[in-house]
Amino acid sequence: MLRHLHRDLTKLNDHILALGGRVEEALARASRALVERKADLARKVIADDAMIDELELTIDEECLKLLALHQPVAGDLRFITSAMKINNDLERIGDLAVNLAERAVDLSSHEPLNLPLAFEDMTTTARWMLRDSLDALVRQDPDLARRVCAKDDEVDELNRRHFDILMDRMRRDPEVLDAALDYLTASLHLERVADLATNIAEDVVFMVEAVVMRHGAPPED
């Protein structure tokens, strides 16, 4: 029974990481579509989201099945509940990548605004945060996870700066309202992506530190 549980947990872990890979790819493509104004790349992201949703449902089912069938305790239970949360967060990031891609499609039809917007930095940082949070999950590395959490402020700061620059421009030049609003929304989406990556990193810290605690504390299972 225990062996079955562990085999299923390994499979769950693999699926979470595979989902992570897809979401990473979607975010990378959406980012490139936004920065390089590539509408076709953005449309691909939108079309591929169905796969992410499907994988999310599969993982959710797997988690519920594991809970019902094995009634796991302690560390295993913690792993499954964390997996459910991370699954949810990843799917949300996938949706945000779609939103970002939609903005990119919109923006590619507008004239570029000559503004010192740092979308290249912002997308790069958000992607790194997602990548590092998943790497931290793989390596069970709470230090890396903590570094992800620390990076969140950078993205928040960029978002604030974008807000200031775009609001200023919109006030002066209402003609660019559409494009500026697109940029503003995109910036907000990226800020949300960073938040969700931070959530994942926090889950990793909880997962790992609890495992460490399990060794020191009275046996729970």
Binding site: T10, N13, A18, G21, E25, V138
Partner: peptide, 13 residues
């Protein structure tokens, strides 16, 4: 190691 632990690239998987 398991493949998922070393890469998440969907194309490789």
């Amino acid at each position: 190691k398991r493949l998922a632990e070393i890469t998440r690239v969907p194309e490789i998987l």
